[in-house]
Design a protein around this nucleic acid. Structure first.
Lengths: 134, 134
DNA sequence: TTGAAGTATAAACCATACTTCATACTTTAT
DNA sequence: ATAAAGTATGAAGTATGGTTTATACTTCAA
């Protein structure tokens, strides 16, 4: 039995970057960019293998989904990093973590308000167009 | 009576770029950038004055407010331009304009959904942190 | 066993959305 | 009358978030 297969048996929930990319629909290079940015880490199993490949777990998949959603609605990578650090890091106290998360929830509520306002503007736009006002 | 004052009396609702900047809280340079990008136009009253200054009306103020809100929630300038063109341009038929605006409204609804999902994730995050799960 | 596909790393390049700099003209305040 | 402030224009520079290119090693399938 090859190392590869043995490894896969134990780490059968772990993904190589290619699978991770397909699973999340994020290009490999972008995933690497995010990793270098410090948004998550893959694990290199040097004790078992010598190939230097990185393996990613479900946790990383979840983080990537969060990143996608958050970017979609206008959060920057540094904001997202702050969020992930609060959630999974060890640098902050429990209260500080909760504060970071609560603040971001507040910002999200603001953004929802903004979106509703833009939506209202566009609905007004449709009415204008219908009334041939422009 | 100077030209300037005379002009202001007639165009008392028109703004110079400085006033426009203060009114909208958008830097002068950014406003010029947006104008060059084609998001709106100031008017040069060469018949009355020779100074080449641009004057901006309420319409421009409204557009800038729309731009601010839309950017805040992750729309790009080119998307915003498309929107403004649909609304105020002459290139499209009424039905085409309505289609552009409706599509964008649909996207906004999607974004609101995304935001609600991210919010849910963060609320879960708070619970995790409280339960000392990370 | 060998060629195709996958992985790692670094560096250069790119698009978007500004920001800064430089130059020159106009208006306004004193 | 003149200095300070405002305006116009063009070009270069910057930050963010990637993408592309190049090189080299590893694994896998036939």
């Amino acid at each position: 039995m090859k190392y590869g297969l043995y490894f896969k048996k134990i780490y059968n929930s772990m993904l190589l970057i290619n699978q991770l990319s397909k699973r999340t629909n994020i290009p490999i290079h972008t995933i690497r960019y995010y990793e270098r940015y410090g948004l998550f880490e893959g694990r290199k199993e040097t004790s078992v293998k010598s190939n230097n490949y990185s393996w990613y777990d479900e946790n990383v998949v979840e983080k990537l989904e969060l990143i996608k959603e958050a970017k979609e609605v206008g959060f920057s990578l540094s904001e997202i990093k702050e969020l992930i650090d609060a959630w999974h890091g060890n640098r902050l106290t429990v209260d500080q973590k909760k504060a970071v998360l609560s603040n971001k929830i507040k910002e999200i509520e603001d953004k929802i308000q903004h979106l509703k306002e833009v939506k209202k503007l566009l609905q007004q736009g449709i009415e204008d167009v219908e009334a041939l006002l422009c």
